[in-house]
C-alpha cells in the first residue's frame, strides 16, 4: 500500500492568496486542524496548521524556543485578539509552513505514517517534479483504511 492508495484526493485546500481570516473560517467549518495551501496553478506552497495560527496570538519573539515559560506576558485576551486581527488580512501563503513534510504517490505507507506521527496534521501528497497537489493523507483516514483491512 502506498500513499496513492490511501490518500484522500479531494481535501480542503486553501489558496495562497486567501486571507488568514478566510483560511481560519475554512478550517473551522471543515473541522480540520490543518490544510494544504496551493498557488494559482495548484502547486503546493505549504501547510497552514492551527499551530501557525495560534502563534499569531502571541508576540513573534515569544514563540522562539529561548523561553522556558512566557507567563510573564500576562493573559490579556483583548491583546491576543488584536494581534490576530493585525494578521487577519495577510495572505495565507505567508503564514503557511513552507518546510512541512510532503509525500509522493509512491511513498510507502510506513514512511507516510512516520511523517504524520512526527508532524501531526495533514501530509500533502504531491507530484515529484511539479509539486502539484494530488491529495492528503490524514491520521484518521489512514487509521480507518488500515483497520478496514482486518
Amino acid at each position: 500500500m502506498t500513499c496513492q492508495t490511501i490518500m484522500f484526493p479531494s481535501p480542503l485546500v486553501i489558496a495562497a492568496s486567501d486571507t488568514v481570516a478566510q483560511a481560519v473560517r475554512a478550517l473551522v467549518s471543515h473541522e480540520m486542524a490543518a490544510a494544504p495551501v496551493v498557488d494559482a496553478e495548484g502547486r503546493l506552497v505549504g501547510v497552514l496548521s492551527e499551530q501557525k495560527l495560534i502563534a499569531l496570538l502571541l508576540p513573534k519573539a515569544a514563540t522562539f524556543d529561548s523561553f522556558q515559560d512566557i507567563s510573564f506576558l500576562g493573559d490579556d485576551v483583548a491583546d491576543m485578539a488584536s494581534r490576530f486581527a493585525e494578521a487577519a488580512d495577510r495572505p495565507a501563503g505567508e503564514i503557511a509552513d513552507r518546510e512541512a513534510a510532503v509525500a509522493h504517490p509512491d511513498t510507502s505507507l510506513s514512511e507516510a505514517l512516520l511523517l504524520i506521527y512526527r508532524r501531526n496534521g495533514v501530509l500533502p501528497v504531491v507530484e515529484r517534479e511539479s509539486r502539484a497537489l494530488l491529495g492528503v493523507v490524514t491520521a484518521d483516514r489512514a487509521l480507518a483504511r488500515i483497520l478496514e483491512v482486518r
Binding site: P59, K60, A61, A62, F64, S66, F67, L73
Partner: peptide
C-alpha cells in the same frame, strides 16, 4: 545575547 535578545524582541514588539 542569547538570553537578552529574545526578551528585547518581545518588548519592542509590544
Amino acid at each position: 545575547v542569547l538570553l537578552i535578545v529574545p526578551v528585547t524582541l518581545v518588548i519592542t514588539e509590544e
